[in-house]
Design a binder for these strands. Structure first.
Length: 257
DNA sequence: ATGCCGTGGAAACCACGA
């Protein structure tokens, strides 16, 4: 079973590109972020015509997350990250697919830091840690996939010294991600490729993709019950070079049945 | 070192992203 996370940066603007990728790669489960579409504007018809069941949590202009499952319906578990009734951003959705709990998340960017947006990011990380703690030790397989907006280590950014004060790389944020891993989560890409330079995002400008000036900020974390089934992981980085691409590329894991 | 680009929504610019 292949599970993918993909920040599409606007599902409406990305639709042709996305459907091409979906048709060519036919992944089993897809976690989407940054739909940037209200609930009633999600392109449900084309997605279902492509052979996928789908649930989504939209929002006007910003955020928005979805879970797609090939030839089946994702069984929704929740569409809000617990812990803050005041938080109205659409940044989390969770469903069961083929016996695997799929958490799809879009973590706040947090810039500029310091400031209220960074404070919101840190609070969101705390809530994620609290929710993930229960899932980490579950005997049921769980994957937390999404755009974490966290550069885990210096190896995951083209020029670390330029990013030390950025909300994606500040020590508080890296420490929170490290605490997440200490709960028992496996960072699939890094575990299978410990020494490679791997990016999942390249800026739209300054020819970032051409220069390979990227970041690794999209992650798939597996709990222990699922990590034993991990066989492969990678980035569909060629998609970043397609016409009208997102600034992120799809990131995937293959799991033994 | 910097939103220089891209998207959405409203308004012929601004917010936001990373």
């Amino acid at each position: 079973m292949r599970v993918v996370t993909y920040n599409v940066n606007g599902i409406t603007a990305r639709l042709a590109n996305f459907l091409r990728w979906l048709g060519e790669r036919t992944p089993d489960v897809v976690c989407l972020q940054e739909l940037k579409a209200p609930q009633d504007k999600f392109p449900e018809g084309p997605v279902r015509d492509a052979g996928y069941g789908v649930i989504w949590h939209g929002q006007k202009s910003w955020n928005g997350v979805a879970i797609l499952a090939r030839n089946t319906e994702p069984a929704e578990i929740r569409r809000v990250l617990p812990g803050d009734p005041e938080d109205v951003h659409s940044r989390y959705i969770e469903a069961m697919v083929h016996g695997v709990t799929i958490g799809c998340l879009y973590l706040p960017n947090g810039n500029p830091a310091p400031g209220p947006k960074f404070d919101y990011k840190l609070r969101w990380l705390d809530r994620l840690l609290a929710h993930a703690a229960a899932l980490a030790g579950s005997e049921q397989p769980v994957i937390l996939a999404g755009d974490y907006n966290v550069i885990p280590t210096e190896r995951d950014v083209y020029k670390p010294e330029r990013w030390v004060d950025d909300a994606l790389f500040r020590t508080e944020v890296r420490a929170a991600f490290a605490r997440l891993l200490e709960q028992g989560w496996t960072d699939a890409i890094r575990t299978l490729h410990p020494h490679e330079t791997i990016y999942t995002f390249w800026d739209f400008f300054r020819n970032a993709y051409g220069r390979d000036a990227g970041l690794r900020i999209d992650h798939l974390l597996l709990n222990a019950a699922l990590a034993s089934r991990l066989t492969a992981a990678g980035v569909d980085r060629d998609v970043r070079g397609w016409e009208k691409p997102s600034d992120h590329a799809p990131v995937w894991v293959d799991l033994r049945d």
